[in-house]
Amino acid sequence: MLSRRLFLKSGALIGCSAAAHPWLTSISLAAAPGENRLVVIILRGAMDGLDVFQPYGDPALPGLRKTLSAGPAGGAADLDGFFALHPALQPLMPLWTAGEMGFAPAVSTPYRDKRSHFDGQDMLEAGTGTDLDLIRQRDGWLNRLLQQMPGAVSETAYSVGLEDMRILDGPAPAKSWAPETRFRVTAQGQRLLEHVWHDDPLFRQAGGQAMEIVAEGLERIDEEKGPTRDIRALARFAAGRLNGQTRIASFSIAGWDSHAGQVQVIGRALDRLAAAILTLRDGLGANWGRTTVLAMTEFGRTARENGTGGTDHGTGGAMLVAGGAVRGGRAIGGWPGLGEGDLYAGRDLMPMRDVRAHAAWALHGLFGTPRGILERDVFPGLDMGEDPRLLA
């Protein structure tokens, strides 16, 4: 059976040519009631939170990292006398100063010890608590949120790009499109196609949705220049939708797997993250004040630097929060310490809190989703614990 996604990617029928940039990611969007906006950015590859938000005030850090995470002495910007912001995120310092950016150190999903990117990302997007739950739960936590929102308009949920994002998978309907796919057909050609696929329900549905998406202009993303071109275009596209009826957007940024040469690897990835957030802010305009951005990763990296100037797969990581709706300018949550007896399994930053709890409290504040629904249906088995007061 030919899926909608395969139909829209195919060039055999109507001259479509999928020429997506290799860095271009999927984006999922959905309409929901109210005026608050949520953007979830999945950081694929395990971002090193100890390098992004450098705990230079922890006396054990210099012994673990000889060349990484040197704090202000290495060019990072001091945040609060204990943490410093990686130099590549310096463009976001005005957001920190304005209280529009913060971070949660030492967080993770319940995923432990196996340290597989694929499993870790699946668990993050599915929002489950155990591997067994992951097998049972085939949908994503944003899709389950939509199912619990009486006023959600699921017909306007899209998955745009060349890869699926599990975070919005599920019974709530979605449409698919690749932003750089060229889909050109004249009015006469459209009538001919409609006649051809009229008696084929599969092609009639897929073709009709493709025409609808093209009519809305979703395939038009401005050409950009520079290494952050694609992510700026994607963020601008998301902002444009969020300024309309869309209230929830999710996309991913890859490139965080820094086993070797971490200085270069993480610098490039952070440039893209900063560009995405600043483009969202600029594009949203007044709606930035009603927006919350959650940047989440599947797990952290080892506390110790390895012999190739990188770090290996770990456990505890960090979550970045931004937006005019957040209560930023602070580290959100406790710090476990980096002493020998403080590390998880003697090698990783010890998680202090389930990252799903922060996401759940954000959903509670933004959309009024009851705690019981969040703990039972959206994030099965989660104990949200105390409110971290993410929102202003």
Rank of each mutant, 00 (worst) to 15 (best):
M1I: 11
C16K: 10
H21C: 01
V40F: 04
G45S: 06
P55K: 03
G57T: 03
L61M: 05
G63A: 15
R65H: 06
T67E: 12
A84K: 02
P87K: 09
P94G: 14
L95D: 00
G99N: 12
G99P: 10
V107E: 10
Q121N: 13
T128H: 01
M149G: 03
A152E: 02
Y158I: 10
G161W: 03
L162S: 10
E163D: 10
D164P: 04
R166L: 15
D169F: 02
A178G: 13
R191S: 02
H195Q: 06
V196Q: 08
L202P: 02
L202W: 07
F203H: 13
G207Q: 01
G207H: 04
A210W: 08
S250T: 12
F251T: 06
D257N: 12
A260M: 09
Q262N: 11
V265G: 02
I266A: 08
G267I: 09
G267M: 10
G267K: 09
G267V: 13
R268N: 09
L270N: 12
R272L: 02
T279N: 05
L280I: 08
G285N: 00
G285F: 02
G285D: 05
A295H: 06
E305A: 12
T308E: 09
T311W: 06
D312Q: 09
G324C: 07
A325R: 11
G328C: 05
A331M: 13
P336A: 12
L338R: 02
G339Q: 05
G346N: 03
L349Y: 07
V355W: 01
L363G: 03
G365R: 09
G365H: 04
P370A: 09
G381H: 15
M384K: 03
E386C: 03
